[in-house]
Amino acid sequence: MLELLTGSGLAVAAGLNAYIPLLILGLAGRVFDFVELPTAWAWLENPWVLVVLGVLLVVEIVADKVPVVDSVNDWIQSVIRPVAGGIAFGTGAASETAVVTDPASFFTSSAWVPVSIGVVLAFGTHAAKMLARPALNAATAGAAAPVVSAAEDISSVLLSFMALLVPVIGFFVLLGMITLVVLRIRRSRRARLLN
């Protein structure tokens, strides 16, 4: 059960920023003894992979802080974040997956299930973020972009660490985040109806 909570937290974090949970997973697997990545995902610990993830994270952080560029970046990330969520869920759920060099064995085994769950979770988070950003930019003339982006990055880091260290608390934080999003959507709908 804890593995599913860990995987869910990491996948949702990937929906906010694709590279943060993957970088944290790779570094944790490399540095800490209590984090042992499944064999199929051990490549996340490779120093070159960590460097590439670090560079991509810097690009993502900068691009996400600039109004209009953040929306373009969100469209580009529409594929990347769900894939990262699938990887993060598959790794966090400690699923042994078939090596992807043989796609037939990947899909005939049940290895695709955790990856698919992670893709759905990350895409849901990403879609909510992608839909909210243009409205925030328009309402604040772009002033909200760096603040909201920083909050998303901090949330992704905290959610990733909590998913690894205390997945039950991470699950409750995740529920709290979902509740906040739902409440904000309801408030904005009410405000539109009143206007």
Rank of each mutant, 00 (worst) to 15 (best):
G85L: 00
S109Y: 02
A145I: 03
L131I: 04
D102E: 12
A132Y: 10
F172P: 04
W112A: 13
F106C: 01
A84P: 06
V181Q: 09
R187G: 11
D102T: 05
S149T: 03
V148D: 07
S188D: 09
F161G: 02
E96T: 12
I178P: 03
P103C: 11
A151D: 07
F107V: 15
F123C: 08
F89H: 01
A191E: 15
V120A: 15
A127F: 15
I185E: 10
P134H: 09
S95Q: 09
L183F: 10
V168R: 05
F107Q: 03
L159V: 06
P103A: 10
K129D: 07
I154W: 08
L136W: 07
A163W: 03
R190H: 11
L194D: 11
I117P: 09
V173H: 01
A163L: 06
G86L: 03
V120W: 02
L131Y: 05
V181D: 05
R189P: 00
P134S: 08
A93F: 12
A94N: 12
F107T: 05
V100K: 04
V166S: 06
S155P: 00
L193Y: 11
A144R: 04
H126I: 05
S156F: 06
A88N: 04
D153V: 03
S156H: 03
G86K: 00
F123V: 05
V173K: 01
V173Q: 06
P167F: 03
L193M: 13
F171S: 12
I185F: 10
S116G: 15
L159D: 10
N137R: 12
S188W: 10
